[in-house]
């Protein structure tokens, strides 16, 4: 390796806390791709890192708050949206991004999610959906598909899974999109759109967990999971999110909702100004 090559720095290095890299995630984990796409979105939008707050919950992807070189907060299980709401209302000029997993946001934190979406709090939620509780050993969760093998469903899962985009759209989010970890370009565009939008934006990322989920479900490596995303995903922009199902043969991806609505913070400030003038 030449001296020049040793001196070369990764273009997104300034978005990462270098002393904490390399990160803890397994080889081929989708969380690293989400971090990469998030860094790229910040880079392309040229957002000042001092105005970004990353809040994460518990789970493998919860570690992301330690890796992003912005102000960040690793919160208690299921509560990142509650913390993010507080941060956003206290300092409205901040861009508050919640990056967390499906178990954190939709199992224990499900109520926070639907009510933040209903109120249209101006936060951005990026959810890594890996179908399973990866960090605690692979128990089944609210997004585990039917018949999937997990450590707590050794005969196959018999529970129906949440359709996260449908849930977000029905709760009142202004921007809803779903991509897989393979759709890096479209995912970056969606994160960029979400960051620029006022109101509750939700981006679901179907992420691979080769170690805990894929290995037990006929996909031995991270590459085979990515190949599954490639073969099964079907882009259907602005289709009905209720029909956006995930099955072994088909993953409907795309942008589902993009509407304008006044955010909770704006209505609150307007109300406050109105009452103060009276």
């Amino acid at each position: 390796m030449t001296k020049k090559q040793l001196e070369m720095k990764h273009p997104y290095e300034r978005f990462l806390r270098k002393e904490r890299m390399p990160h803890i995630w397994c080889e081929g984990c989708g969380n690293g791709i989400i971090l990469n796409c998030f860094a790229r979105a910040l880079d392309e939008l040229d957002i000042d890192l001092n105005n970004v707050v990353v809040v994460s919950g518990i789970g493998c992807i919860g570690r992301i708050s330690g890796y992003v070189n912005a102000d960040s907060f690793h919160t208690t299980h299921g509560r990142p949206i509650a913390f993010a709401t507080g941060a956003k209302l206290a300092k409205p000029e901040l861009k508050v991004v919640v990056i967390s997993g499906d178990g954190d946001l939709f199992a224990i934190g499900g109520n926070h999610f639907i009510h933040a979406a209903r109120r249209n709090v101006d936060i951005k939620v990026i959810c890594a959906n890996n179908f399973v509780y990866g960090m605690t050993g692979g128990q089944y969760g609210p997004t585990t598909p039917l018949e999937a093998w997990t450590t707590t469903t050794p005969y196959g899962n018999i529970e129906q899974a949440f359709n996260l985009v449908h849930l977000a759209a029905a709760s009142g989010a202004v921007y809803v999109a779903r991509w897989t970890a393979l759709h890096v370009r479209r995912l970056t565009e969606s994160i960029k759109k979400a960051l620029q939008k006022e109101g509750f934006s939700f981006v679901e990322v179907i992420s691979q967990c080769p170690e805990i989920y894929g290995r037990h479900n006929k996909m031995k490596t991270a590459i085979s999971m990515m190949k599954w995303f490639k073969e099964a995903s079907e882009v259907r922009n602005f289709s009905d999110p209720a029909k956006a199902d995930i099955s072994p043969s088909r993953i409907i991806v795309g942008e589902f909702v993009d509407v304008e609505k006044p955010s909770y913070g704006r209505l609150l400030r307007e109300m406050k100004a109105k009452l103060q003038t009276e």
Binding site: P11, Y12, L16, G28, G32, I33, N36, C37, R40, V184
Partner: peptide, 11 residues
């Protein structure tokens, strides 16, 4: 490759 690398190891 830059975009899909989870470990920021290639560009």
């Amino acid at each position: 490759c830059t975009a899909v690398c989870p470990d920021f190891a290639i560009f």
